[in-house]
Deep mutational scan, measured.
Amino acid sequence: TTITITINGEELRIRGDHEEIHKILKAWEEDHNDEEIVRLIRELAER
Rank of each mutant, 00 (worst) to 15 (best):
D31P: 04
K26S: 08
R13V: 11
I37W: 05
R42C: 07
E46V: 14
L44Y: 06
K23V: 05
E11V: 15
E29R: 15
R47H: 14
A45D: 04
W28A: 02
E43P: 01
I21E: 00
E43N: 08
I21Q: 01
K26I: 06
I14W: 04
E11S: 15
L40W: 05
L44V: 03
E29W: 11
D17E: 11
N8G: 10
R15A: 06
I21H: 01
H22N: 10
T2D: 07
E29L: 12
I14N: 00
D31H: 12
I7W: 08
E35K: 07
R47G: 10
L12C: 03
E35R: 06
I7C: 07
E19A: 11
T1E: 12
T1N: 08
T6M: 13
I37L: 14
E19S: 10
D34T: 08
R13K: 11
E30M: 14
R47V: 11
A27I: 10
R13H: 07
E30V: 13
W28E: 00
L12A: 01
I3V: 11
G9Y: 03
I21S: 01
R15P: 04
H32G: 08
E35M: 12
G16E: 02
W28G: 01
G16L: 07
R42V: 04
E43I: 12
E29T: 13
I24C: 02
D34K: 11
E46K: 13
E46I: 14
I24N: 01
N33I: 13
L25N: 01
D17Q: 09
T4M: 10
E43S: 10
R39N: 05
T4Y: 14
I21G: 01
E11G: 04
I14G: 01
E19I: 08
E29N: 13
R47K: 13
E43F: 13
E11R: 15
R39E: 04
E19Y: 12
R15C: 04
V38Q: 11
I7D: 00
I41G: 00
R15Q: 07
E29F: 12
H18E: 11
T1R: 10
L12G: 00
E19W: 12
K26D: 04
T2Y: 15
E36G: 07
R47A: 14
E20Y: 11
E43G: 05
I21W: 05
E29V: 12
T6C: 14
R42P: 00
L44H: 03
R13T: 10
I37K: 02
L12K: 01
E35T: 09
E11L: 15
I21K: 01
L12M: 07
L40I: 08
I3C: 11
E36W: 13
N8K: 07
N33R: 06
I5V: 07
D31N: 14
H22L: 13
R13C: 03
I5C: 03
V38R: 10
A27E: 04
K23C: 02
L40R: 10
A27L: 15
I7Y: 04
E35G: 06
D31L: 10
N8F: 06
R42D: 02
E20Q: 06
D34C: 12
E29A: 10
T2C: 07
T1W: 12
L40T: 04
G9F: 04
R42L: 11
K23L: 08
E10P: 00
H18Y: 15
I41M: 05
K26W: 09
E20D: 09
I5G: 00
E29M: 14
A27P: 00
H18M: 11
A27D: 03
E11F: 15
K23R: 14
E10M: 13
E43V: 09
H18N: 09
E19R: 08
W28R: 02
V38D: 03
I14P: 00
V38E: 06
T4D: 03
G16D: 03
R47D: 06
E35P: 15
L12E: 00
H22R: 12
I24D: 00
I21P: 00
T6Y: 15
T4Q: 05
L12R: 02
A27T: 06
E46L: 15
E30A: 15
R39C: 03
N8T: 02
A27H: 07
I5N: 00
H18T: 11
H22C: 12
R15V: 10
E35C: 09
E11K: 15
I37Y: 05
E10W: 14
E46Y: 11
K26Y: 07
I7E: 00
I7M: 06
R13A: 04
T1K: 13
N8P: 01
E43C: 14
T6I: 14
E43Y: 12
H32P: 15
K23S: 06
R42N: 04
E35Y: 08
H32F: 09
E11A: 15
H18S: 12
T2E: 13
T6D: 04
E30D: 10
E10R: 15
L44Q: 02
R15L: 07
R15G: 03
K23M: 10
E30F: 14
D17S: 14
H18G: 06
K26L: 08
I5R: 00
D34S: 11
H22V: 10
D34M: 13
L12P: 00
I14E: 00
I37T: 07
E46Q: 11
H18L: 12
G16V: 06
E35F: 07
H32E: 11
E35Q: 10
L25E: 01
E46T: 10
T6L: 12
T4N: 04
I41A: 03
A45G: 03
N8Y: 04
A45I: 13
D17C: 05
K26M: 10
G16W: 10
N8I: 02
T2M: 14
E36A: 12
L25G: 01
L12S: 01
W28T: 01
H32N: 11
A45P: 01
L40G: 01
E30I: 14
N8L: 06
L12T: 02
E30L: 15
V38H: 07
R39A: 07
T6K: 11
R39H: 04
H32C: 02
N33F: 14
E30Y: 14
G16H: 03
H22Q: 08
E36C: 03
N8C: 07
T1Q: 11
L44G: 01
D34P: 11
R13G: 02
R15E: 06
A45H: 05
I7V: 08
K26P: 00
E10Q: 15
H18V: 11
T2W: 15
I5H: 00
K26A: 09
E11I: 15
I5E: 00
T6P: 02
G16K: 03
E10T: 15
I7A: 01
E30S: 13
T6A: 05
I24A: 03
E20S: 11
R42S: 03
W28I: 07
I37D: 00
E35N: 08
W28H: 03
L40N: 02
